[in-house]
Design a protein around this nucleic acid. Structure first.
Lengths: 197, 197
DNA sequence: AAATTCATTGAATTTATATTCAATATTATA
DNA sequence: TATAATATTGAATATAAATTCAATGAATTT
């Protein structure tokens, strides 16, 4: 690959990197193309050399996020709680060292709620519907006493909404995550597990 | 009060009512003055007869919310968990019958995170800092075993962030709340209580 | 090294939205 | 009822942000 092509790749990657952070912190509408340009240290015009539009840039991020966030189809844990615990551990750990993962998570989950996002972008993210999937896992696991009693869908809803709230907060208050002061996974798992019996 | 003055009050109240819902559902920037006008069934121009600007309208809502959300200074519960439980019960109950309270809560909590909100508005909401306050309550209560072990600030942070996540979700998916399918307070309380021992 | 292609910028242009305004209708007061 | 004050609208204007563009500099190819 020529020097130019490498440069181009790097430049695009830089833009995407900065954009992910900004979109996560400020939301789609409040992130101005100029903000991203400034963060990536280039002129606004140049942004449009690399990306056709703000929307296309966002779409690319969502596409990327849809892969990254992808939940494994197969979940063969003896204890299904491990799935949730694993996810939480990774997410919290990453929020410290690789905030990108956290930012992506926030972006991906927000899309599903926001009516402002163009539908075709919403669809890209649609596969990542943790609530539906988790509800099934919970329903199955309840029979073996792994989860507390209660409407599985509501439990999943509560669990994921909580995590979203926490991650959004961490994303916009990075000093907490950076200092390593992070919630314990247990605290959050207890939402669906119920206290240790 | 003259008919006109009453009308004016009602009209303003209607605008505020619709605006609260929209601001909560879509956020400040994504809520266009035209959206509010349509919801309140009036022309855009008329909005400016009642409110000087979008920002002033928002400011009034925040002022109102700062009162409504006001946490009582005095909290004399034998069991400090009751404070959190009470709050949750009310909030969840209200989300069904008086979504306005839920919308306000969402708006108020969002302000503190969003850098787009003009500082002078942020200050109006600054008093409502549940995390700091709750951290103290938790710290004190831990000594009597009411709360689980752990950094009180982080526990408060986790608790309130979770609730925010849940409320944001409920606000944008009102069908859940309306159908009365709501999370149990216990599930959320367990974040700070730890499972029933 | 000349010609070509790509990167970059800053200044137009376009577009979306907030805000103002002149005109008209409605209600209140004399 | 006539006059004044307020409510309302739709059309202008202002503003902010996205997007395009012409010009210039840098790298690549011949």
């Amino acid at each position: 690959m020529s020097i130019r092509d490498e440069q181009k790749e790097q430049r695009r990657a830089l833009i995407i990197d900065k954009a992910i952070e900004l979109f996560a912190k400020k939301g789609y509408s409040d992130t101005k193309i100029g903000d991203i340009a400034k963060a990536a240290d280039m002129s606004v015009g140049l942004m449009f050399h690399y990306f056709e539009s703000k929307e296309k840039l966002f779409e690319e991020i969502v596409r990327y996020g849809a892969n990254a966030t992808n939940t494994p189809r197969e979940m063969n844990f003896e204890n299904p709680l491990d799935y949730f615990e694993g996810f939480l551990k990774v997410m919290l750990q990453y929020s410290k060292e690789h905030p990108q993962a956290m930012y992506l998570f926030v972006i991906m989950r927000r899309i599903q709620q926001s009516e402002e996002i163009p539908p075709h972008i919403r669809e890209i993210a649609a596969g990542v519907n943790q609530i539906e999937q988790s509800a099934e896992v919970i329903a199955a696991g309840q029979e073996h006493g792994y989860f507390r009693e209660g409407d599985p869908y509501l439990l999943a809803f509560t669990f994921w909404s909580s995590i979203q709230g926490i991650m959004e907060r961490l994303a916009s208050a990075p000093e907490l995550a950076e200092s390593g002061r992070l919630p314990e996974t247990d605290w959050i798992i207890d939402i669906i597990r119920g206290g240790r019996q």
